[in-house]
Nucleic acid binder design. Structure first.
Lengths: 151, 151
DNA sequence: CAGCACCTTCACGTTGACGTAAAGGTTAGC
DNA sequence: GCTAACCTTTACGTCAACGTGAAGGTGCTG
C-alpha cells in the first residue's frame, strides 16, 4: 500500500461527497453548478467518478460565499468567475511579456475588473448599512425611553 | 372641481399602477405580496379597485428594500413585518398604561425584537464586509504592482 | 355614451435552484 | 469475490416569486 502517494495528503483528489461535506453543500448542488457551467471537476476516475482538487474546493467555497454572504444569483456568480478567469489569463500574459507598456495595460484591465466587483459589493453594503442605521436609530429611541424610565 | 379635496395632495389614495411606479415594483408583485399576506391595501374603490395610502407605500418600500438590499425572502420579510406590528401594539399598550414596571417590560420587549433584527442584519453585513475586504486586498496588490511599474 | 386605459379575479406558465427517486456502475474492506 | 457504500446519468418533482394571458368590470374624457 501507499506506493507513490505524493506526500502526506498533498494532491489528494476528493470525490463529490467529500467536497460537499467540506463546503457544506450537497452533492446535488455541486453537480448543478457544473451543469450550469460554474466549475468542472479537476478530473474523473477510471469509473467516471468526479474528482476534485484544492482549486475546485476553493472555487466552491467562493461560490457558496457569493451566494450566501453576498446573495448573488448563480448567473451573477458566473460572471464574477469569468472575471476571475480573465484576470488569470491576464496574469499569464503579464508574465509572458517584458514590455512595460503592455504590462501596465494588463494590470489596468485587472484593476478595472476588480473595481467593478468592488463597486457592486460596496453598493450592496451601503444599502444594507443604511437599513441597519434605520433600525439602530429606532433601537436607540427605545433605549432612550428605557433610560428615562430608570432615572 | 376640487370640492372637498383634503389639502393639497394630503391623503390621496393611489391605485395599484401608481404605487407600482412609485416603488419601482410591478402591479403583479404588489398583488402577490398581498396574496402571501405582506400587506393589505388601505381600501377599495366602489368598483373594487385596490387603493393605497402613504403607509402602504412605505410598507412596500420597506419590503423592496429588505428584498433587494438585504436579500431577505418574502417569508423572512413577513416575520420582520410581524415584529413591526408587535412593536406597534406594544406602543399602544405602552401609551395605555401608567404603570412604570409594565412600561419597562413593554420597552424591553421592543428592544429585544429590534436587537434580533439588528443581529441578523449585522451578521449579513459582516460576512459581506469580509468578502469586500478579500477583493480589496487583491485590488491593492494589483495597485501595488502598477505603482512599482510607474516609479 | 362610446372609447380607451386601467382595474378585477382566476388560472396556467416560467425561471432559478435545487430535491428525490430509479436503474445501474464503481470501489474499498473483509 | 461479495457486499455495502458511494458514484453515475436521466428524469421528473418542488418551491418561491413572480409573468402572462383571458374574460370581464370601472372610470374618466371627449
Amino acid at each position: 500500500m501507499a506506493p507513490i502517494l505524493p506526500g502526506p495528503d498533498q494532491a489528494r483528489l476528493l470525490r463529490i461527497q467529500e467536497v460537499a461535506e467540506l463546503c457544506a453543500l450537497t452533492a446535488r448542488s455541486i453537480r448543478y453548478y457544473e451543469e450550469v457551467g460554474l466549475l468542472k471537476p479537476a478530473g474523473r476516475s477510471e469509473g467516471a467518478y468526479r474528482l476534485y482538487d484544492r482549486d475546485d474546493l476553493e472555487r466552491l467555497l467562493f461560490i457558496k460565499a457569493m451566494r450566501d454572504d453576498a446573495g448573488f444569483s448563480l448567473a451573477e456568480i458566473g460572471l464574477l468567475l469569468e472575471d476571475e478567469a480573465a484576470r488569470e489569463r491576464s496574469r499569464e500574459r503579464f508574465m509572458a511579456t517584458r514590455d512595460i507598456a503592455e504590462r501596465r495595460a494588463i494590470l489596468r484591465a485587472s484593476a478595472g475588473r476588480l473595481d467593478g466587483q468592488l463597486a457592486r459589493l460596496h453598493d450592496k453594503a451601503e444599502r444594507l448599512g443604511a437599513m441597519i442605521a434605520g433600525v439602530e436609530e429606532r433601537r436607540a429611541r427605545v433605549g432612550c425611553r428605557l433610560a428615562e424610565l430608570d432615572q
